[in-house]
Simulated assay, not measured.
Amino acid sequence: MTSSADSELYFRLHVFICTNRRPADSARAGCGGHGAEAARDHLKSRAKALGLKDVRVNSAGCLGRCELGPVLVVYPDGVWYRFETIADIDEILDTHLGRGGRVERLLLGPDARPVLTA
């Protein structure tokens, strides 16, 4: 049985940004050491400034795709992005979070190839 509350989302979109940090001698890269924390802070403050109260931005531990990163994922859409600059974050904010589109050049599909190294 489904209640009416089951069909309503508390947040329209939930963004998780990997901010995981790994030790310097780790064989795997970590998004946190590649600008993810600053990107998260920027995205959070810009979303708030734009009045996107139905969008929640959170840090996440390892999302399992750090070699592709830094990365973020938008739910419930299940859309993955990699980003390099604050301009990339702004484009994701405007295009995806604001207008419901996709930033094709930053999308990470299931077959994405590694970018980062430790």
Rank of each mutant, 00 (worst) to 15 (best):
D25A: 11
R12I: 01
R99W: 02
G101P: 06
L72D: 06
L52S: 01
R28V: 02
G101N: 04
R21W: 02
G69K: 01
V103L: 03
W80C: 01
E91Q: 11
D6N: 12
E84K: 00
L9D: 11
G78F: 13
N58W: 00
D94T: 10
A60P: 05
N20W: 07
E84A: 06
L108W: 12
G78A: 11
K48S: 12
S45C: 06
L107D: 10
A36C: 11
A24D: 14
E91T: 10
T117F: 08
N58G: 00
C31Q: 09
A112F: 05
F16D: 03
A60G: 04
E8Y: 01
H42S: 08
L9R: 07
N20S: 10
K48V: 08
H34Y: 15
N20K: 07
R99C: 10
V57A: 07
G98Q: 06
L43F: 04
V71A: 09
L93G: 00
R28C: 02
L116T: 00
G35F: 05
A39S: 13
C31V: 09
G35D: 15
D6V: 02
Y10D: 06
L52D: 06
V55E: 09
C62V: 04
L68G: 00
E37L: 15
A47H: 06
D54Q: 10
A5M: 09
T19N: 04
